[in-house]
Design a protein around this nucleic acid. Structure first.
Lengths: 211, 211
DNA sequence: ACTTCCGTCGCATGAATATGTGATTGAATG
DNA sequence: CATTCAATCACATATTCATGCGACGGAAGT
């Protein structure tokens, strides 16, 4: 029987393009391409199940990652391949943890997407090379090793910790008993060293273990 | 400069075959193919370093996995691809933990090996599909804990994601095509639900998986 | 002795955020 | 049909942030 593929992708152009391409391939059919997880869940209730779903992350309504959980919960036999522009570790790992069986970046060509689907059906786990690299790096990080610390000074690390704890400049100043202007100064230097320009990015980097 | 590849493989036929193939490729050279880690270590002391080493696991003397550790310890810039018949999880994970950047099964064709080397040099992590599948299965097993979801609405999740992506209110408004005042309203509600009162705290909670 | 770096502090300003107090629509629920 | 609630929008204001400039003392190295 020819494998059936579904698509969840909010960009209509991309969605239609992929659907048309896959559907015209020998040995594949792609009867459904919707723009939200909600629509896909509706579809699944009333139609024969697809074997594979290509899923974006950034979607109107429910995120693709949440969508994986729900779909795998109800229909554990459906394999899901993420197809997204996001390549930050948290999204990748959350998607994989949620049950994704593959993770492709959006620049992947149509023939490569087709290849990936076939690989998946053959028991493989298609991943863009960059993604694979992050995944295996994750393995290596979780093993005892001396990490190449960034070049933040001890005081700067204090400040970063304050930010991660969600403190304001003022609260950080109080915690370390220094002036708020000093906090500002440190933060300026931290931003320079990390090439960022907001608290948010510092927190993200820190929690991702990049500091 | 053309990348240089080294080979550690005890089967002389396979070793010579791969070396001859790679060395005749445009844009690759393969000046060294030995049958043990010990020989490779000797070679590395006295010659220009290769960029990539293809390594078997089952070898006379030291095992390939032990070899990875030693080589990465001395020459951290050399990337190592395992090329082996073993596909059991322990060998795979031990190899990756030891520092391997790729893992191919021996049935991989010569052109695929060449492709894999190029992918690796391009920042990827070449893996046979079956291997990739085992690696990501490992992720899913290690996450038996399902977090008690917070009671954020789908839209509120969108907003949180925007914050995590480092977007400003304005950018979030643009992304979802809503007013900045609506973004403000959602954020107010999110803060109430999560008992926080700054972007920083929301981002931290989200990245810590508490949302 | 001289330079370099860390940690400290100040002032100023435009941009972004946090928070209050509203209001309207529509879908869902009882 | 009444209620609830998600989602949308508006206006206002105090606070916080991001970032520019500049400064000083001390420790560590050349």
């Amino acid at each position: 029987m020819t494998p059936v593929v579904g698509i969840v992708e909010d960009n209509k152009k991309i969605r239609d393009l992929i659907q048309r391409y896959l559907d015209m391939q020998d040995g594949l059919s792609c009867p459904v391409a919707v723009d939200s997880v909600e629509d896909m869940l509706d579809y699944l209730e009333e139609h024969p199940l697809p074997d594979v779903i290509l899923m974006d992350i950034q979607l109107p309504g429910m995120s693709g990652i949440k969508g994986i959980s729900l779909i795998k919960e109800e229909y554990e036999d459906i394999d899901i391949i993420m197809l997204t522009v996001y390549h930050d570790s948290h999204k990748i790992f959350n998607a994989l943890r949620a049950g994704a069986s593959g993770y492709l970046l959006k620049h992947t060509s149509l023939p490569e997407i087709k290849e990936s689907i076939l690989k998946l059906l053959d028991g493989g786990a298609p991943m863009s090379p960059q993604i694979a690299r992050k995944v295996i790096n994750h393995f290596q990080e979780n093993t005892p090793k001396k990490n190449a610390d960034s070049d933040l000074t001890p005081r700067e690390h204090d400040i970063v910790n304050g930010l991660v704890d969600g403190l304001s400049y003022k609260m950080i100043a109080d915690r370390y008993d220094i002036s708020i202007d000093t906090v500002r100064a440190h933060i300026r230097n931290i931003y320079k060293k990390l090439h960022v320009n907001s608290k948010a990015e510092v927190i993200a980097k820190s929690l991702k273990g990049e500091i």
